[in-house]
Amino acid sequence: MLNFSNTLIGILNFVTFLLSIPIIIAGIWLSKQGVTDCEHWLEKPAIVFGVFLLMISVMGLVGSCCRVSWLMWVYLFIMFLLILLLFGCTVFAFVVTNKGAGEVLSGKGFKEYRLGNYSNWLQERVSGRTWNNIRSCLVSSEYCSKYKKHYADHNDTMFYKEKLSSVESGCCKPSNDCGFTYISPTNWTKTEKGVPANPDCNAWNNDPNILCYNCQSCKAGFLQNIKKSWKKVSIANIILLIFLTVVYSIGCLAFRNNRNGDYYNKY
């Protein structure tokens, strides 16, 4: 029974060791094959996380199966820090994504998004050079071109009923405040009613490489998409936290078994 915890922690770490390999391979593949900023920004975190997972798995595997007490102690210490870090990141993600939601429009199937509705921390993430990289990514991925093809046969009545994604609503069409006349999903005629209060109206351009990529609504739509993703990741983090806590508890038992084995070997 005393060896059960050592065996179980060894099995769990062997599984995580196997999982780390495809993560590292995916990161290396992205660094070689990725041609847009969308792909490149993921490569380093993927490689770092994969290598970290591999190293800690090897430590737990050797420490439990070979009964190396000092290695198990280091393994448990790193695991404890990882649990604290993951807990902090999860709480932080919930806090910064707590604000912000789409604005329902009367008679429209889609929503509109305002940058000021989101947390200050998120707003800072879509400013300056960072936003230039994101915008470049959106343009090179032809996001709005695919949107244009999808709704190409829609007249204005049909289009206004569509439930557009946050990025489509924010980046690929002008704001509803502008009152522009619909020609096609990415082609709108500006009105002659003067400059609207919403600055996004002046930022809009029918050029497929410009559209509303410079608009505040585009940043807000992108943040809404990030917010939804972070909510899902936070839920996954909670499950991972429970798993890591169980592994950590079993690891503590394995460490105690190693210490007891060392004690009996002396006498």
Rank of each mutant, 00 (worst) to 15 (best):
S217G: 08
G50K: 09
L84Y: 02
N258L: 09
I23L: 07
G60Q: 13
I11E: 09
S69T: 14
N260L: 15
M59G: 11
G251W: 11
L105W: 10
C215G: 06
S57D: 05
G60P: 10
E103N: 11
F17V: 05
A220H: 00
L8M: 12
L71H: 02
I23V: 15
F94I: 15
D207N: 13
L211M: 14
C38R: 08
E103L: 04
D262L: 11
S165C: 08
L76K: 07
Q33T: 11
S217H: 09
L30V: 09
Y182A: 13
Y182T: 01
L54Q: 07
D153Q: 12
R256Q: 14
N3R: 14
R135H: 05
C252S: 09
E192G: 10
W41E: 06
V51A: 04
Y118S: 02
G88H: 07
N117F: 05
K227A: 09
P196K: 00
N214E: 11
L86T: 11
C137V: 13
N257Y: 02
V35M: 03
K190H: 06
Y118Q: 06
C201Y: 02
Y113T: 13
G34E: 01
V95F: 10
G102M: 04
C38V: 07
N209C: 07
G102R: 03
C89I: 10
D177Q: 03
I183C: 04
